[in-house]
Simulated assay, not measured.
Amino acid sequence: MITLFFFIQIFVLFAVVALAFGSTVPSYNTPAPSYSASTPRYSAPAPSYNAPAPSGPVQYNFNYAVKDDYSGNDYNHQENRNGYDTQGAYYVLLPDGRLQRVSYTVNGDSGYVAEVTCEGEAQYPAYQPTPSRSYQPAPTPSYQPTPSYA
């Protein structure tokens, strides 16, 4: 009697498994998916600024200068432009103590023409190493932690 009951249970189990797998078997007669490509539409946004349109040849003048005695920074730049003709000059204090001056011009298609001069004598002071710092371990804590178990 137990063996017949055992065989019925196995038969029911196989029937349930077969039914479960039978319902998920794909059908090979499904139609192919349809695809219709839409045409892309591109439109550039209108600019959001109201810049005036150029009304002639470029003209500008600018200059700036920095002189900071604490850090030793000392430089200057100035430039004038009228159409394609540009004249300018700048100078900078070099690390060796000299002052480097550059005067330049640009006339149309002639390119950048520069004249570079240095003023002063290069100075190389004797090397003086900085004192090295010695490592000191941190002091031991003055308290004695005691573990507590709750």
Rank of each mutant, 00 (worst) to 15 (best):
Q87R: 12
G88W: 06
G88H: 04
A89K: 08
Y90R: 12
Y90N: 11
Y90S: 12
Y90V: 01
Y91S: 14
V92W: 00
L93N: 12
P95Y: 05
G97F: 07
R98G: 05
R98E: 07
L99Q: 11
L99C: 01
L99K: 15
Q100A: 12
R101I: 12
R101T: 14
R101M: 10
V102Q: 07
V102S: 12
V102G: 02
V102P: 05
V106T: 13
N107C: 00
N107R: 13
N107P: 00
G108F: 08
S110R: 04
G111I: 01
G111E: 02
V113N: 15
V113P: 00
A114G: 01
E115I: 12
V116M: 03
T117P: 00
C118S: 09
C118D: 11
G120D: 10
E121L: 11
E121Q: 15
E121A: 14
Q123D: 04
Q123F: 03
P125H: 12
A126L: 13
A126Y: 10
A126F: 07
Y127M: 08
Q128G: 04
Q128A: 14
P129I: 05
P129L: 05
P129C: 03
T130H: 07
P131D: 14
P131C: 02
P131T: 12
S132K: 05
S134F: 03
Y135G: 10
P137T: 10
P137M: 07
P137Y: 07
A138I: 04
A138V: 02
P139S: 13
P139H: 07
P139C: 05
T140K: 08
P141Y: 11
P141C: 02
P141L: 08
P141N: 10
S142Q: 09
S142E: 10
Y143R: 01
Y143A: 09
Y143T: 06
Y143H: 11
Q144L: 13
Q144N: 15
Q144W: 05
Q144Y: 13
